[in-house]
C-alpha cells in the first residue's frame, strides 16, 4: 500500500503479523532503547512475541512458540 501525505512523502507502514513480528517499512526516524537514531528508508522486523534472543529485532523464535495475538 502506498499512501502519499500532503508533502508528497510516502507514509511509512507498520504491519503486525499474527503471532509474529512487527514490520516497519518506509522513511522514518528509528530510535533504539540505547538512544541510537537513524533517519532513512527502513525495513525493520521487530520482535512482537517478546521471546526473541536478539531484541528489539525478530529472530524467528516466535515460530517455536505459540503466543496469543
Amino acid at each position: 500500500m502506498e499512501i502519499e501525505n500532503k508533502s508528497g512523502v510516502k507514509t511509512p507502514e507498520v504491519k503486525i503479523l499474527k503471532d509474529g513480528p512487527i514490520i516497519l517499512k518506509g522513511f522514518f526516524r528509528f530510535r533504539t532503547s540505547s538512544g541510537e537514531e537513524t533517519e532513512k528508508e527502513h525495513e525493520i522486523l521487530l520482535c512482537g512475541c517478546g521471546k526473541s534472543g536478539n531484541k528489539p529485532y525478530c529472530d524467528e523464535t516466535h515460530k517455536k512458540n505459540v503466543i496469543k495475538s
Binding site: M1, I3, N5, S7, T11, P12, E13, V14, K15, I16, L17, K18, D19, I22, L24, G26, F27, F28, R29, F30, R31, T32, S33, E39, I44, L46, P56, S69
Partner: peptide, 27 residues
Amino acid sequence: EKMVAEARIMKNGPLVLKGDFTIIDAD
C-alpha cells in the same frame, strides 16, 4: 507535526510510533 515520523523502542516496554504511520493489524 510536520516533522518526520518516528518509531522508538522503549526499553522493557512498547514500540512508540509518533507522527504519520499507516498501521495494518494481523487481520
